[in-house]
Design a protein around this nucleic acid. Structure first.
Lengths: 229, 229
DNA sequence: TCAAAAGTGTTCTTGATACACCCATGC
DNA sequence: GCATGGGTGTATCAAGAACACTTTTGA
């Protein structure tokens, strides 16, 4: 059933930059394209926006369909509207970025998409369309936002050690942080709940486990508190 | 000449939140709608994106056509993609915000649009569509961004006094700032060039005029400098 | 007993805040 | 000469940065 309009219309898509964190490395989830154009090339998960869903819903649906990921942190990033970004026709894409707890999700997702794979952000393959631009924009946003919003926790398991948290920040910000100062600062905010358990991993002293206290954060935020690292 | 597509498509528009600053007041430029829906209501300037222009270009074109404003600071804000934001049909809108030097532009713009008018942000009329949401988002963005990027200068004439600059920040941030501390901080960045002229307005001591040194800022930025107020 | 990561305080420096008076001008 | 906004310096306090050793565990 064809649809006709008085004026020509751009197609509208969503694309998702999915970040994960694993073993001190920041990673991105890419999908190998099975169809032209850019067949065989790696690309961001995404697809067309349907009329009966919001743009946000489209992003969640495509993420779920192409990578199996659900209930993840997802936020709109930027809209890419260059004329020739898709060689076939005019396509405007609303980009999102997602943060997933990599340890709690299967390595490549329960996906019906042919091929999904995590890549270290420092070792990315060539990407289809303008997806390299989108990814760079997402990285800049993540680097900026992680410093003044407690979104880093979205990349860690619910229970984590202070060292894991520090390594996450070091990976995202590409900087070395002082262990004592980092702990002092993050603990002084009172947003980390120490758990009774300890992590026992390897031939070392076991580390205290914490979880992020989201309720306390939203209560503090209302009173004007600002997370800042 | 009708255009036919296999799947139905949303229409794509741009909307612009235009900020100005005048006499210690932050203002927004609105347009009175001449057509249904929301006929007679105030709305943000904006319109449909054409296939032969980028989304950014569409924003600039609509701004020029509806308000007469050209060569202003313009930055993408957010894309609004709720299903029923336009009662006629599915319309997704990429919102922008603009900062204009109000003193250097005519009060209501050399506009072909019937009716354009500046409103104080504290005294806004009811707005068409979801434009109140868009405007609120733009205000939040402006409040956030003005603190860590030197965009406030886009709202002032090229030559300005320190008091004018301070009043601008006080209006945007809705806070009172200490005069001495403000001057110390802003001058210590070395981004304001004192001019030889002085402002002579009223029965007071004339104030030193400055201009923002954009070249110096971009040079410093490359070396890792961060503007922050 | 060794390797490997966990944990812990103090000093110094820097930047933020608070605060009050004289200056130049037009009327 | 007075009203109005322009312009200036210091003392205090809080937060950030730099820095090294002991503890606990498994192998």
């Amino acid at each position: 059933m064809p649809h006709t309009y008085e004026y020509p219309r751009a197609a509208l898509t969503v694309d998702c930059v999915v970040f994960g964190f694993d073993e001190a490395e920041l990673k991105v989830l890419l999908i190998r394209r099975g169809l032209a154009p850019f067949k065989g090339k790696w690309a961001l998960p995404g697809g067309f926006v349907r009329l009966e869903e919001t743009v946000d819903e489209a992003a969640r649906r495509e993420l779920s369909e192409e990578t199996g990921l659900k209930d993840v942190f997802l936020e709109q990033l930027y809209t890419f509207g260059a004329i020739d970004r898709d060689p076939r026709e005019r396509v405007v894409s609303v980009a999102y970025y997602a943060l997933v707890k990599l340890a709690e999700h299967p390595a490549t997702g329960a996906s019906d998409a042919s091929d999904a794979q995590w890549f270290t952000v420092a070792e990315l393959p060539a990407l289809a369309f303008d997806h390299a631009d989108i990814l760079r924009t997402a990285l800049e946003r993540l680097r900026g936002k992680v410093r003044y919003e407690p979104i880093g926790f979205e990349l860690l398991p619910q229970k984590f050690t202070l060292s894991e948290l520090q390594h996450l920040y070091e990976a995202v910000l590409q900087a070395n942080l002082d262990k004592r100062n980092f702990r002092k600062k993050i603990l002084s905010m009172g947003l980390l709940l120490p758990l009774k358990e300890q992590a026992r991993t390897g031939a070392h002293r076991p580390a205290q486990l914490f979880r992020f206290d989201a309720k306390k954060y939203s209560a503090l935020k209302k009173r004007g508190f600002n997370f800042e690292l």
